[in-house]
């Protein structure tokens, strides 16, 4: 009985450890994919703001909605320990992410707040895209400044 209990406890401890150990590369890949998806939609809005892409209300609104949807995804969980710059190839994540987890999470909260209104904010004309994009991009910069290696 005691042996079974011990084995059970050991198993419960080991599973998350194993999961973490295996998921470092997956998490990194997922992070990059997540940022790439954000970039595609931000790129649509940036192109419209600069007049390089013709303004299309539906397309702008969709980009805003996509960004809002992505902001609701729990991206913070993808920053698993052992995936900082220097610990794993291709990572630009600074160790500060794991040293100041609350501040890091706060950056995503701030992003989600701005993103929640993005789909509506970019409606009604090309002139509305710039200000909405600046609010979104500001939250990108704010986090990159503190938590991403500038290379």
């Amino acid at each position: 009985m005691r042996l079974i209990k011990s084995a059970l406890v050991a198993g419960l401890i080991a599973v998350p450890v194993l999961a973490t150990a295996q998921s470092g590369e997956d998490a990194l890949e997922a992070r990059h994919g997540y940022m790439r998806m954000l970039a595609i939609n931000m790129g649509t809005l940036a192109g419209m703001a600069k007049g390089e892409i013709e303004y299309d209300e539906a397309a702008a609104s969709t980009a805003g909605a996509n960004i809002a949807a992505l902001s609701q995804y729990g991206a913070v969980a993808l920053f698993v320990p052992g995936t900082a710059n220097g610990e794993i190839d291709e990572s630009d994540a600074l160790p500060a992410i794991w040293e100041k987890p609350e501040q890091f999470a706060q950056k995503f909260t701030a992003f989600a707040e701005v993103a929640s209104g993005a789909s509506e904010a970019v409606k009604g004309g090309q002139d509305n895209v710039g200000p909405a994009l600046q609010k979104l991009g500001g939250t990108c910069k704010d986090c990159h400044d503190d938590f991403r290696k500038p290379e």
Binding site: G43, A46, L133, Q134, G137, G138, C140, P150
Partner: peptide, 8 residues
């Protein structure tokens, strides 16, 4: 390009 889409 700091990849923030506003300060490029």
């Amino acid at each position: 390009d700091p990849e923030d889409f506003i300060n490029v």
